[in-house]
C-alpha cells in the first residue's frame, strides 16, 4: 500500500494557484501599458513608468527574485494541471509523463533562478 508522493506536488500546485489567482491578473493588466521605446533611447521612468517597472521587475536583484517566484508558481501550477489533464483526456499517463511535466517545470524554474542569481550578484 504505497504512499503517494502527490502531497509535494499538490502543495506546490496550491501555492502556485494562489499566486496565479492573486498576483498574475494585475501583472497581465499592467503589461498592456508597456510602450515601445524609441530607437536609441534608454529606459526612462519619467517617460514611461510601466516600462521602467517591468524593467525593474526583471533587471533588479529584488525584482528578479519576485519574478522568479512568479514564473515558478505559474509553471509548476500549470504543468501539474497539464499532467492531470492528460489523464482526463484518457491518455494513459505513466512515470514518463510525470517526468516530462514536472521536469519541464523544474528546468524553467531553474533558468529563472539562475537569471535571478546573475542579476542579484552583478
Amino acid at each position: 500500500m504505497k504512499r503517494s508522493n502527490e502531497p509535494i506536488f499538490w502543495s506546490i500546485f496550491g501555492a502556485g494557484g494562489m499566486l496565479v489567482a492573486i498576483f498574475v491578473p494585475v501583472l497581465i493588466a499592467l503589461s498592456f501599458f508597456i510602450t515601445k521605446i524609441p530607437e536609441g533611447e534608454q529606459i526612462n521612468a519619467a517617460k514611461s513608468s510601466i516600462d521602467a517597472a517591468f524593467a525593474w521587475f526583471t533587471y533588479s536583484g529584488f525584482g528578479s527574485f519576485i519574478c522568479f517566484l512568479t514564473i515558478s508558481g505559474c509553471v509548476w501550477h500549470a504543468l501539474h494541471r497539464v499532467y492531470h489533464g492528460m489523464h482526463d483526456l484518457t491518455i494513459h499517463v505513466n512515470f514518463a509523463h510525470q517526468l516530462i511535466c514536472y521536469g519541464l517545470a523544474f528546468i524553467i524554474s531553474l533558468i529563472a533562478l539562475v537569471a535571478c542569481a546573475i542579476r542579484m550578484f552583478s
Binding site: 501583472l27 497581465i28 505559474c74 501550477h77 494541471r81 489533464g85 537569471a115 535571478c116
Partner: peptide
Amino acid sequence: RESSVLFAMLFALELLAGMICAA
C-alpha cells in the same frame, strides 16, 4: 477551468524571456 492556467504559463514564459534578456 483546468486549461485556463495555460495562459498564466504563457505569461510566465514571456517574463522568463525578459529575465534571460536581463541576465
